[in-house]
Computed example of a mutant assay.
Amino acid sequence: MSRPPFTPTVAALPKLVPFVGPEAMERARGRPFRARLGANESVFGPSPLAVAAMREAAGENWKYSDPESYELRAVIAAYHEVPVECVVVGEGIDGLLGLTCSLFLTPGSPVVTTDGAYPTFNFHVLAHGGKVHAVPMRAFREDVPRLIETAKTVCAPLIYVSNPNSPMGTWWTAGDIAAFIAELPPETLLVLDEAYCDTAPEPTSPAIDVSNPQIIRYRTFSKAYGLAGARIGYAVGERSTIEAFDKVRNHYGINRVGQLGAYAALRDQDYLKGAVAQIAASRNRIRAIAEANGLSSLPSAASFVAVDCGADGAFASRVLTGLLDRDVFVRKPVAKGLEHFIRISCGQDEDLALFAGALSDVLASVHA
């Protein structure tokens, strides 16, 4: 007996997991991490109003979710002062990126992104048969002018930009992004991933313009809102573009508990402000810990800090391994030019105390 063959696109893909989850690492290690500082989750958690809404919703989880996510879309639309038809909800930004590729890519389509930027986008591009054109970072941030020039050269239908950037935490200002949008080549769509916009200084995000069909803005409840496990993200854009998502999305792919939790979280902006303040304080402490150990770090607008280990990628990998061995989960970039950094997510005081102790111990060990 045999099954039908995979499509040529799938058959040609290597086995790829964009991120190895901490749970898989814990299974392999045979013990849990004491500090979980690698996945850019908000350990400060969601709004108590969101928790209460989800707890109440759990008893009615026998119901399917609203396939239109109408109430959630309506509150998002009101928040951004756009029509509800200009908002689509998806399974986090990751799910929406995959749907975007479904809408705009055919086998061989060129797509422009940054070498070392969020790798899951590349995963979706390749799965849809697209060809990735990766531009190196410049000064540890995405070189958007060169991305645009590359898109013009290869006639790319999509350009991916994350602002603030993952994994470095660097950013462009709102004025910069607006100027870049004005320079987009015709028939090119800017995929603007703003997962970390809530933790960024003002002004980082330009005003949303749903009359422009050349840009889609992607937001999430996974970061500052503390709802990573709910898997709720959304995109805002020109109406006909957003409505096309209905042709390809999984209409029952959003869980009802997550819908209601995100609805309550968005309405509790006071809690969000407090969480963002805690994230900013945590960033400052991570930078101080790095400095106390003779290391430097990049200014960050995200919920993590990129710390320069001061040598090459092999040295940074030893630091990373040492931290993991000491039960502190962190990650590191792997792209050329970025590999000498490690990346630490913001955490509670007790998490960062464990990180500080482990880092001092690891550096003493690897230097020895």
Rank of each mutant, 00 (worst) to 15 (best):
E142H: 07
D94L: 04
D66T: 10
G347A: 09
D349E: 13
L105H: 06
T153R: 08
Y218D: 02
Y196V: 00
F104I: 03
G233H: 00
L184I: 08
T170C: 08
G229T: 09
Y160H: 12
I208H: 01
R267V: 05
A368Q: 14
C101F: 02
P46H: 03
G30I: 15
T113F: 06
G274S: 11
A356I: 10
D115I: 01
I148V: 07
M25H: 13
L359H: 02
L49K: 14
A264N: 00
P333T: 01
E202C: 05
A50G: 09
A39P: 14
A134V: 02
N250A: 10
C155Y: 06
T7R: 08
V75N: 00
A356D: 12
A182L: 12
S296T: 14
G258R: 02
L103Q: 03
G313Q: 05
L354Y: 03
R331W: 03
A353V: 12
W171H: 09
R138V: 13
V191K: 01
H124T: 02
A182M: 11
Q269H: 13
S345G: 14
S162L: 03
R55M: 14
R141N: 07
V191A: 11
I279N: 02
F221E: 03
V87Q: 00
R326G: 07
G357W: 00
D268M: 08
F19V: 15
R239C: 10
L272S: 12
A290S: 13
F44S: 09
A178N: 04
A179W: 00
Y118T: 07
F180G: 01
H124G: 08
A335S: 13
G92D: 09
G253S: 15
G21Q: 13
A280N: 11
E149G: 05
P18F: 13
L158Y: 06
G226T: 01
D270H: 00
D351V: 05
E149M: 10
A316L: 09
V20D: 10
I148R: 05
K131H: 07
F44A: 07
P333C: 11
G253C: 11
T7K: 07
S102G: 05
C346S: 00
V191I: 10
D115W: 10
G108H: 00
S365L: 11
T170F: 07
I279E: 07
K15F: 15
D115M: 11
L295S: 10
S240H: 05
S240I: 02
I232P: 03
T7N: 03
P110T: 00
A35Q: 02
A280W: 00
L324Y: 01
E23M: 15
E60C: 15
P107V: 02
N165P: 12
R141I: 02
A364V: 10
A53M: 06
F355K: 00
V43Y: 05
G261S: 04
P32L: 15
D327W: 01
V144K: 02
E60S: 15
F315I: 01
N165D: 14
A292Y: 09
E26T: 14
V20H: 12
L126W: 04
K247C: 11
A275I: 04
A277K: 09
G95A: 09
S365P: 05
T188I: 15
G322P: 10
D268Y: 04
